[in-house]
Write a protein that binds this DNA or RNA. Structure first.
Lengths: 361, 361
DNA sequence: CTGAAAGCGCTTACAG
DNA sequence: CTGAAAGCGCTTACAG
């Protein structure tokens, strides 16, 4: 008997029982004597039994895995990529009958916080009525979120948090950007580009997100450690217009703009172009979309750091499925996607580049 | 009948035939009347039949897919990663019973070209005697390679080329680095770092490889286009010692060393450290290993560009399996892996970063 | 030219 | 506590 190639049927034959009994032993099901269970487990161990995933999958066909996914809506380029990552992973796992149902919720304008929470919660309840096997959620910042996650968990419905985390909840794991580290990467790029000298304008429209706060902190920490001679001016006005041209700002006195806030990058560059200042200042941003690609191509953006939403979605679904199908526990309960540095010359412009980004097409 | 969820059994029932006949129709097998075949195909189309990959796989278990893989040996860190990518992909596809047999051949020293070719070829023949279903090969530069690839292809054994390509052969597709583009990326990094001014030492131990030649060309092209004021000195001595300190070289007259030749990067940096020159010059290299990681961490290397061997192996096996199992033709017959820019702050130092590099562990 | 059946490796409802 | 059997969706060797 070749090691590792043994099947449940083989074990049954060796143990002198039937396959049903073997199954009971392997899955710690009830209705089996301790003695037979031990005998069977010993045999399994001796012959290094590994369950055949595809036999199991075929048999599992009867109950397809329904996974509820609740994402944000804006910025759309970002969340579209996340949804795409989820669909690609689902397609890869289609052998296991994964069936993700993706819903979105808006966080932009026109509603009070309470109204958002209510909308979010009602969507969640509605999705759950369809008897989901698991959820992938982008959490909102409200105590109920923890309650609901814990409730689902108690009912045996695991929850994964995407992009934002609630460590105080019983989500089984989290996948998101390493925002602090991405700030450090931006600082190293900036410092290298300025040879450790000069003036930097650091801009964010939105510090309310803890992600942006952490990114700024990463940027500042790395600057203080490695480039103490660079002078940093923070601006966090609501619009790039105010930030770059409001008050008594002389934009040309800066050597570099670092735009912490991924959502306003292309807007910021467009403004510099319009004012005729774009050639006098280096621009470093976050995240990539088609506008940003154009700015990279024509040289008006030097670099962006991407912690791509696609990978977040892809790995969230994939690791969740491995958890559901193989009972494989992720190594950590908090994981991050890579910080990719994207310049004109290494941005991906065609699909001859093999890459998870394109595997689903 | 839900669209797309129809099975062969359903079709058989609808057509009033048995599943064996449906199978004959779907696979263009002989022994079926044109009329029944048409009827069955029409039904399949109408109900949007998609074969269930996992049913097929289970049934295919009887003939596991044996794939022969022939890689180089040196530099080991590189080919170990390629082999690892292949194993990870095989594990991911284990549902389909993929069984890669990986062999290596040396290209270093002590043999004539003819002897190498003979060794390579005998290994290939030996592997093929085990009735492989497909091959992944790192080609050697000899006409016989084309002959053998074409011979295998004619016998219905597809061949994929890895890292190097032979476009004149009938390999079904190629995956490798985009060496020309990686040279351009290095040039953009260098140019940015020097703000378009200064002197660069461009070093390669080995121009005989067409990969290094193309990389150099990419570097030069981008420099001429974007940073015409940077002065470039080429050195291609056999050792870094000769290149950096041989003749009348004053290494400190350079602002930056760009080391085209991925295999000598850590050696070069170690030499600069030993001579006390490392703080006076920026270093840009290619490929990453544990030594290079240390140099990145302590700041003696500014950046490396990685076209990781892992991905080459991973995608080669994966796309080959998709070809064998689903008959899925890759979009292009020549594909490249990404050029990743790696600085101290974004190099991956722990496995909390979700990444194909770590998916197999 | 077509049918009937076994088999891939597992899970699960049912019978005893 | 254990067994016997059906079934997941496909492929294939054999019978007619």
């Amino acid at each position: 008997m070749e090691k590792g190639k043994i099947t449940l049927n083989d074990i049954a034959r060796i143990a002198g029982v039937t396959i049903g009994t073997v199954d009971r032993a392997m899955h710690n099901r009830s209705g089996i004597s301790e003695k037979t269970r031990q005998k069977i487990l010993d045999i399994a161990k001796e012959y290094d039994y590994k369950p055949d995933i595809i036999g199991r999958s075929l048999s599992m066909k009867r109950k397809r895995l329904k996974i509820g996914v609740l994402l944000r809506r804006e910025p759309t380029f970002f969340w579209d990529h996340a949804a795409r990552g989820i669909r690609v992973a689902a397609k890869e796992m289609e052998a296991f009958g994964i069936n993700p149902q993706i819903e979105y919720f808006h966080m932009t304008s026109g509603f009070t916080d309470e109204e958002y929470i209510a909308m979010y919660r009602s969507t969640l309840i509605q999705m759950n009525e369809d008897h989901k096997n698991a959820f992938i959620l982008v959490p909102v910042n409200h105590p109920f979120l923890v309650e609901d996650v814990n409730f689902l968990n108690k009912k045996g419905i695991p929850v994964v948090t995407l992009n934002d985390d609630r460590e105080d909840s019983q989500r089984i794991f989290h996948i998101g950007p390493d925002t602090y580290q991405s700030g450090r990467v931006a600082a190293q790029l900036t410092g290298g580009l300025l040879s450790g000298q000069g003036r930097v304008l650091l801009y964010t429209a939105n510090y309310s997100s803890s992600g942006y706060f952490l990114r700024k902190k990463g940027f500042m920490d790395k600057m203080h450690e490695s480039y103490p001679d660079i002078h940093i001016t923070e601006r966090n006005q609501k619009t790039v217009l105010e930030a770059f041209y409001g008050g008594d700002v002389d934009i040309r006195s800066f050597d570099c703009i670092c735009n912490i806030d991924g959502a306003t990058v292309s807007e910021g560059v467009a403004l510099l172009k319009q004012k005729g200042d774009v050639d006098f200042i280096k621009y470093i941003g976050f995240e990539i979309n088609s506008d940003v690609k154009e700015h990279l191509a024509d040289g008006s953006i030097h670099a962006v750091i991407s912690q791509d939403a696609f990978s977040q979605g892809y790995f969230a679904l994939r690791m969740l499925c491995e958890y559901l199908v193989y009972a494989k526990q992720p190594k950590y309960d908090r994981m991050f996607v890579r910080c990719d540095i994207i310049l004109k010359e290494n941005m991906i412009i065609n699909d001859r580049i093999v890459n998870p980004y394109f595997m689903g097409d």
